[in-house]
Design a protein around this nucleic acid. Sequence first.
DNA 1: CTGCCTGCAAAGCGTTTGCAGTTCA
DNA 2: TGAACTGCAAACGCTTTGCAGGCAG
Lengths: 145, 145
Amino acid sequence: MSSTVTVDQIVLVVRAHGKRVTQPKRAVAHVLCDSEGHLTAEEISLRVDSLVEDVSPSTVYRILEEFEELGLCEHTHTGHGAAVYHLVGGGHAHVTCNVCGGTWQVPTEFFDGLAEQLHSSQGFHLNPHHVALAGICRECAAHHL
Amino acid sequence: MSSTVTVDQIVLVVRAHGKRVTQPKRAVAHVLCDSEGHLTAEEISLRVDSLVEDVSPSTVYRILEEFEELGLCEHTHTGHGAAVYHLVGGGHAHVTCNVCGGTWQVPTEFFDGLAEQLHSSQGFHLNPHHVALAGICRECAAHHL
DNA sequence: CTGCCTGCAAAGCGTTTGCAGTTCA
DNA sequence: TGAACTGCAAACGCTTTGCAGGCAG
């Protein structure tokens, strides 16, 4: 449970927007609320399958897309691999290791200086959540010595 | 001509590593040297086709991969779309607009503060060139008002 | 009962790979 | 000459889409 958002709150938002609340949607909401964030669609799909039978990956993608439109979750591209999904409001962005493929959270504040420079120099509005910056993590850097 | 690297220099490096210099490789080198950076593999392939007949996209990918191994060029992931390729040594990273899909260069120095924070807080070595940060560009932000 | 939502399968995009033939050194 | 390189086509991983049926409201 990495977020303060609950399944019930997600259900309310979905209904408030005139969308229907189904078993697959409940399951996806549950997985997102119970996770530590940054799960791929495939991982979400696997966990959903353990809650509800026969939920197809395409349905998971459609539900994640709906949740994004409702401002409930967002996805982050991590370079080579699949995108990761997480509930909004965590106050963190992501970095990915090019060697081991792991993903970590970093406080959004780390991006403040960069965002300010981008905005003042070229009028660019940074969204630090939408892509994960790449690099090499502590462990992989140590192994590479 | 956005870089100071020349086709001849690339040819020398390729030969120095015992690799062969072929027509397709010359053409890719030419396109990279003549471009302003951040071209997708498809765009490179199209421009190569205007220089040499019947060069397949897979060959372009293989040549770009070889150039990367030789430290001549690198690719940057831009979120949803295709990766962009450019010669190394430009001293700049990239940002992408989520609305129009455009890509811009930003000085690597903009990332210095963030890189320092990532390193001191979690030992992460940032490579600012490998992914393009996302956001909304000046024009699209204005249109969205 | 109506139309939003779903499962399935197929297609899509960007990229990689296997293989037989070609070409550079 | 022979290893490196190439074109073609097929496969790949991730994601989206078309369609016929199913279920929420």
